[in-house]
Computed example of a mutant assay.
Amino acid sequence: MSLSLRVFSSALCGMFVFLFVGGPLAADDSKGIAKNPMIKNLVGEWEAKGELTGPDGSTYTITEQWTGAVVSENTLAIEGKREINGGQSDFKWTIILNADTGVYEATHVIDNNQTQRFEGSFSEETHTMELISPLDGGGTMKLVRVFTSEDYNTFDTEVTFTNEKGEVTIRGKLVSKRVKKS
């Protein structure tokens, strides 16, 4: 696997790892994680498909199957499989509402035990989640998720990688559809 594909793969595999502080996602621990407007809509079985394009025209075809479930009052677990250009990986992440601090924290593990951290924001008004993660070498990975159906059964994820100069190096979109509500 080329270096750029390894970096891309490990970063993409961590695309749901994030830390939300304050703002619309600030915790109300009387509600628990399942009441959070964005988190609660990740529960169920999902499939995603999409394609990203590199600066040289190379493409990365992606498919995913994953399940999100509330496993305790303050914990959402997500487990799944991802394929990028034929290479497969299992991934698992856990999103926890820290009732003491009011912060959502997440950890993510993939086959090779790599972890990625994102900072994010959320807008109930536009049904949008924006996640940004620094990458080695000074670049970033930005994910903008927008629920595109009123029933929250479909969302688009715009993916943009930039280098240390802020130039776009990989860009594309994944479309996620709920297969089954839990």
Rank of each mutant, 00 (worst) to 15 (best):
W93M: 09
V175Q: 03
T115A: 04
T140P: 03
P24R: 15
V109D: 00
I62W: 03
R178N: 04
T154Q: 13
I96Y: 05
L174Y: 06
L135R: 06
G54Y: 12
E51I: 15
N36K: 03
T53L: 07
P55G: 12
V17E: 15
N163A: 09
P24V: 12
G57V: 00
A99N: 02
T61R: 13
I33K: 00
G138Y: 09
V43L: 06
V159C: 04
L143E: 14
F20Y: 10
M38P: 05
T107G: 11
G120T: 01
T157K: 03
E105C: 05
G44E: 10
G32F: 03
G172M: 02
I132M: 11
T157S: 12
K40A: 03
F8L: 15
R117F: 09
A99V: 11
E130N: 12
S72Y: 07
E47Q: 10
T53C: 04
G22P: 00
M15C: 08
M141W: 06
D156Y: 05
G22D: 12
W46C: 01
G86D: 14
E64D: 07
T67Y: 01
K173E: 14
G14P: 05
L3R: 12
L5N: 13
P24M: 12
I95F: 07
W66Y: 14
S9E: 09
T61G: 07
T75Q: 13
E130Q: 03
K181T: 11
K165E: 15
D29V: 13
W66S: 12
E124G: 09
A106K: 00
V179T: 13
S121H: 09
G57D: 03
S72N: 04
G57Q: 06
D151V: 08
T126G: 00
S10N: 13
L5P: 04
S72G: 07
T59P: 03
D111Q: 14
I33W: 01
E119T: 11
V21A: 09
K173A: 07
V43Q: 13
L42E: 00
A77P: 08
R145Y: 13
Y152F: 13
D28P: 02
